[in-house]
Simulated assay, not measured.
Amino acid sequence: MGAVTLAKASFMALDRIERERPRSRSGGPNPTRAHVHPNSRKAGTFEDDFFYSYAKGEPDRLYKQAAELLKRKNAVRRVARAEGRQLTEDERLATLITNTALRVFEQLTTLARTCAGKVFPTWEWIEAAAGVSRASVGRALAALARMGLLDKQRRCVPIDPPADRPKARNAQTSNVYRMRFPNRLARFLPRFLRPVPLPDDVVQREADRIEEIEAMRLWRSPRQVVAEEIEDDGLRRVLDSLAIAIEKQESQKNGQPLLDSYVLGADGVGLVGQRSNA
């Protein structure tokens, strides 16, 4: 047996320490020990812009479309198998729906109809209403979101730090949901359940409107960009101060104004009226 060098023994000891050290799920330390999912937003700050205002009968129509999609998913597989090809991306998404997912979707659309589009049930409520397990609720929500039938946003609320988590500032609360039926799945439905296509002039007008908005956004000041696109309060304050400094620096690059341009004359304003050759 060869002799173990001091360096090799040190590496072996460090490796043993690394293996015995508990790691968080993400591989990094979690000093706050806060039970908050990533991408969570503070409750009460975004819901008014998130929720849909459904038209009369629209939640029921969304459920009927999802139910019809469940009936036709096996036919989609049979067509692809008969043609000797793999499922396309849209066909694969259409076949993700299950009976459990439809039951969960039914409860969410019922809430959308009875609560004016404000849908934020807990998982425990969905379990009891749909009659499925917690694991089934998680799988159903994930499948619906992947298909595009469901948009969800995690939320958190400020809390007083408990004794076991002295650095925690937020805690998880219920998610918010909104339902829709994407156009990429509408072609698998019968004609009477497909949305009526918009006239060409309406489509063109909407495209022109979007193009005009994007052109206007290019002329936003740095402070306007920060105010519209940054959601975190601390980061917004830092970037806002930086944007103010940038605007001040850029304003100093402009040339000197014509000092006589604001002088009122007898025959006009500014240089016009002061001199004949103005």
Rank of each mutant, 00 (worst) to 15 (best):
S53C: 12
S53Q: 13
S53P: 01
S53A: 14
A55E: 14
A55R: 15
A55I: 07
K56P: 15
K56Q: 15
G57N: 08
E58M: 12
E58T: 11
E58W: 09
E58G: 09
P59V: 03
R61G: 06
L62P: 07
Q65C: 13
Q65E: 14
A66W: 02
N74D: 15
A75V: 15
R77F: 09
R77H: 10
R81C: 08
A82C: 06
E83H: 11
E83G: 11
R85M: 06
Q86I: 05
L87N: 09
T88P: 06
E91H: 09
R92M: 11
R92D: 13
T95P: 01
L96H: 13
I97S: 01
T98Y: 04
T98K: 07
N99S: 15
N99V: 14
T100F: 03
T100W: 01
T100Q: 07
A101G: 08
L102M: 07
R103Y: 11
R103H: 12
V104L: 02
V104N: 02
F105M: 04
F105A: 03
E106M: 12
E106G: 10
Q107K: 09
Q107P: 00
Q107G: 02
L108N: 02
T109L: 02
T110Y: 14
T110G: 12
T110M: 13
A112C: 07
C115P: 00
A116C: 14
A116R: 15
K118G: 02
V119W: 00
V119E: 00
V119H: 00
F120E: 04
F120Q: 05
F120Y: 11
P121L: 05
W123T: 11
E124G: 12
E124P: 02
E124Q: 14
I126Q: 00
I126P: 00
E127K: 07
E127Y: 01
E127D: 05
A128N: 09
A129S: 10
A129C: 04
A129G: 03
